[in-house]
Lab assay of single mutants.
Amino acid sequence: MDSLLMNRRKFLYQFKNVRWAKGRRETYLCYVVKRRDSATSFSLDFGYLRNKNGCHVELLFLRYISDWDLDPGRCYRVTWFTSWSPCYDCARHVADFLRGNPNLSLRIFTARLYFCEDRKAEPEGLRRLHRAGVQIAIMTFKDYFYCWNTFVENHERTFKAWEGLHENSVRLSRQLRRILLPLYEVDDLRDAFRTLGL
């Protein structure tokens, strides 16, 4: 685990949702873990991680939370803000982990979509996460503002959007929607068949 708060310049560089993210070879993951008790929730931990020694950050987080003694009788909500969406292998590990821990839910807000040039399996990884109940969305100004005030050593500076933040968020949201769209259509068809008694 690194220091509790991320350096301001590092956050702006790593999380910037630019179309061509040249040189950004690491994934950063800011997280919040909450325990839900009926209508209220309690923050248990927050911080950030990054890839280390060739190990992807998603797997580092799974190792980290596996060391906790999570009460199977309580519900936990984990929220990630990531600089890149998970690769196919990490998505598979996360989905398997969630299946083994049904009392834990995960939301992922990502700055950019990761696509490995040689495999093109990453969209299927995102669909697999979605099927496992993970809520996946692209970061918007509101999410960047929250991260800036929660995870960044900002020295009381106000978060300022860079040129193109909104447009890139919209573009990436549409792309993510197209990736997940087949799932929505299949769910709609299943509901229609059930309604018709087929």
Rank of each mutant, 00 (worst) to 15 (best):
residue 118 D to A: 15
residue 120 K to D: 09
residue 122 E to G: 12
residue 115 F to V: 07
residue 122 E to I: 00
residue 113 L to E: 09
residue 120 K to E: 06
residue 117 E to W: 06
residue 115 F to R: 07
residue 119 R to N: 14
residue 123 P to T: 03
residue 122 E to S: 08
residue 120 K to C: 13
residue 118 D to P: 15
residue 116 C to K: 06
residue 113 L to A: 07
residue 114 Y to P: 07
residue 113 L to F: 10
residue 121 A to H: 08
residue 117 E to I: 11
residue 114 Y to A: 02
residue 119 R to Q: 12
residue 116 C to R: 04
residue 117 E to F: 10
residue 120 K to W: 13
residue 117 E to S: 13
residue 116 C to M: 07
residue 116 C to Q: 00
residue 121 A to L: 13
residue 119 R to T: 13
residue 123 P to M: 13
residue 116 C to G: 07
residue 121 A to P: 15
residue 121 A to F: 00
residue 115 F to L: 07
residue 114 Y to D: 09
residue 119 R to M: 11
residue 122 E to M: 08
residue 118 D to R: 14
residue 120 K to I: 00
residue 115 F to E: 03
residue 118 D to C: 05
residue 120 K to Y: 15
residue 115 F to N: 06
residue 117 E to T: 14
residue 118 D to Q: 07
residue 120 K to G: 06
residue 117 E to N: 14
residue 119 R to P: 05
residue 117 E to H: 10
residue 113 L to Q: 03
residue 117 E to K: 09
residue 116 C to N: 09
residue 117 E to V: 12
residue 119 R to D: 13
residue 118 D to Y: 09
residue 123 P to V: 06
residue 121 A to G: 06
residue 122 E to Y: 00
residue 122 E to P: 05
residue 116 C to Y: 10
residue 117 E to A: 11
residue 123 P to L: 11
residue 118 D to T: 09
residue 118 D to H: 14
residue 123 P to E: 06
residue 119 R to C: 12
residue 121 A to T: 02
residue 123 P to Q: 14
residue 119 R to L: 10
residue 122 E to F: 10
residue 114 Y to H: 04
residue 114 Y to S: 00
residue 120 K to R: 15
residue 123 P to Y: 02
residue 123 P to F: 04
residue 115 F to Q: 06
residue 113 L to C: 03
residue 116 C to L: 04
residue 113 L to V: 08
residue 123 P to H: 13
residue 117 E to G: 10
residue 117 E to Y: 09
residue 114 Y to M: 03
residue 119 R to Y: 12
residue 116 C to H: 03
residue 116 C to E: 00
residue 118 D to V: 00
residue 117 E to D: 15
residue 121 A to N: 08
residue 123 P to R: 15
residue 114 Y to F: 00
residue 114 Y to C: 00
residue 114 Y to L: 02
residue 120 K to F: 15
residue 120 K to V: 06
residue 116 C to I: 08
residue 121 A to M: 11
residue 113 L to G: 09
residue 114 Y to T: 00
residue 121 A to Y: 13
residue 118 D to W: 02
residue 116 C to T: 04
residue 123 P to N: 10
residue 119 R to F: 11
residue 116 C to A: 12
residue 122 E to D: 08
residue 122 E to W: 04
residue 118 D to S: 07
residue 114 Y to V: 00
residue 114 Y to I: 00
residue 122 E to N: 15
residue 121 A to V: 11
residue 121 A to W: 00
residue 113 L to H: 00
residue 120 K to P: 04
residue 113 L to I: 00
residue 122 E to R: 02
residue 113 L to M: 05
residue 120 K to N: 10
residue 123 P to G: 02
residue 115 F to A: 04
residue 123 P to S: 04
residue 119 R to I: 06
residue 114 Y to W: 03
residue 121 A to E: 05
residue 115 F to C: 08
residue 114 Y to Q: 02
residue 122 E to K: 03
residue 122 E to A: 10
residue 120 K to A: 09
residue 121 A to I: 00
residue 122 E to T: 05
residue 118 D to L: 11
residue 123 P to I: 07
residue 121 A to K: 12
residue 116 C to V: 13
residue 115 F to D: 03
residue 122 E to Q: 12
residue 113 L to R: 08
residue 120 K to M: 09
residue 123 P to D: 00
residue 118 D to N: 14
residue 120 K to H: 14
residue 119 R to A: 11
residue 117 E to Q: 14
residue 113 L to D: 00
residue 113 L to N: 03
residue 117 E to L: 09
residue 117 E to P: 06
residue 116 C to P: 04
residue 116 C to F: 11
residue 119 R to S: 12
residue 118 D to F: 05
residue 120 K to Q: 06
residue 119 R to V: 08
residue 118 D to K: 04
residue 120 K to L: 08
residue 114 Y to G: 03
residue 123 P to K: 05
residue 115 F to G: 02
residue 122 E to L: 04
residue 115 F to I: 07
residue 118 D to I: 00
residue 123 P to C: 10
residue 121 A to C: 00
residue 116 C to D: 00
residue 118 D to G: 05
residue 114 Y to K: 00
residue 122 E to C: 11
residue 113 L to W: 03
residue 119 R to G: 15
residue 118 D to M: 13
residue 118 D to E: 11
residue 121 A to Q: 14
residue 117 E to R: 08
residue 115 F to T: 02
residue 117 E to C: 14
residue 114 Y to E: 00
residue 121 A to D: 05
residue 115 F to K: 15
residue 119 R to E: 13
residue 114 Y to R: 02
residue 123 P to W: 04
residue 119 R to H: 14
residue 122 E to V: 02
residue 115 F to M: 12
residue 114 Y to N: 00
residue 123 P to A: 08
residue 113 L to P: 05
residue 121 A to R: 13
residue 116 C to W: 08
residue 121 A to S: 07
residue 122 E to H: 10
residue 119 R to K: 12
residue 113 L to T: 05
residue 119 R to W: 12
residue 115 F to S: 05
residue 120 K to S: 11
residue 115 F to P: 02
residue 115 F to H: 15
residue 115 F to W: 14
residue 113 L to S: 09
residue 115 F to Y: 15
residue 117 E to M: 12
residue 113 L to Y: 07
residue 116 C to S: 03
residue 120 K to T: 10
residue 113 L to K: 00
